[in-house]
């Protein structure tokens, strides 16, 4: 039944929209669509973004691995390489610190009426994505494949069952949140 739903394109377009709706609503309610909140996180004066992300990751990690153990869902880890994951994420980060939104929260910021997000952020990301598509053939066999490690997950890397990593990671993230709260941030 789910497989038929996954292949139903019009239904998937609707589901995408219906998931985006609460996602944008929650990001806005949490303050994550505010430049001041995101920059505050990068300057260590406001820990809202980390609290949202870590509680999402804790909830998601437990749920997805439980659903996977029950055979309901499949994982889709993204492939990576040192050249792609490290260099790409640092370029992204420099953009993140300048723009003060990310591709998801910039869309939410547009919805709440932030003009810097619309005319600066969205226009810039579209230009950047287009530039990357243009240079991709020259990067693909070179820097993007340097240090290729594929779509490996941490449990596969450590050659242990998933839950052996899930439990300590979730515990560590909850511990980090507890430490952030207790230090009054």
């Amino acid at each position: 039944m789910l497989r038929a739903l996954h292949a139903n394109k019009p239904a998937q377009l609707l589901i995408g929209f219906l998931v985006g709706l609460p996602f944008g609503f929650l990001l806005q309610k949490g303050g994550a669509t505010q430049y001041d909140v995101i920059i505050g996180q990068l300057l260590f004066t406001d820990f809202t973004v980390v609290k949202i992300m870590l509680s999402a990751v804790v909830t998601g990690t437990l749920g997805i691995h439980l659903l996977r153990s029950l055979g309901v869902v499949r994982l889709h880890p993204k492939p990576g390489s040192l050249g792609a994951s490290v260099i790409g994420s640092l370029i992204f980060g420099l953009g993140f610190g300048s723009l003060g939104y990310c591709p998801g929260t910039v869309a939410g910021a547009v919805g709440q009426g932030s003009l810097d997000a619309l005319f600066g952020g969205v226009v810039g990301i579209l230009i950047g994505a287009g530039l990357f598509a243009h240079v991709y053939p020259r990067l693909r066999a070179g820097i993007l494949s340097w240090g290729d490690f594929g779509d490996v997950t941490l449990p596969q890397l450590l050659k242990v069952p998933p839950w052996v990593v899930v439990v300590p990671v979730v515990a560590a993230l909850i511990g980090l949140l507890w430490w952030i709260e207790s230090s009054g941030a």
Binding site: M53, A56, V57, G60, T61, I64, L75, H76, P77, K78, P79, G80, A84, S85, I87, G88, S89, L90, I91, F92, G93, L94, G95, F96, G97, S98, L99, G100, C102, P103, G104, T105, V106, G120, G121, V122, V123, G124, I125, L126, I127, G128, A129, G130, L131, F132, A133, Y136, L139, L144, D151, V152, T153, L154, P155, P162, V165, V166, V169
Partner: peptide, 28 residues
């Protein structure tokens, strides 16, 4: 910043949502 982010997101194959939340929760 947007241009750098557009390049960087596709260079890294994802953003703060796709990697930062969805990828980390899969332990990728």
């Amino acid at each position: 910043g947007g241009v750098l982010m557009g390049v960087g997101a596709r260079w890294a194959g994802g953003c703060t949502s796709g990697h930062g939340i969805s990828g980390t929760l899969q332990l990728a």
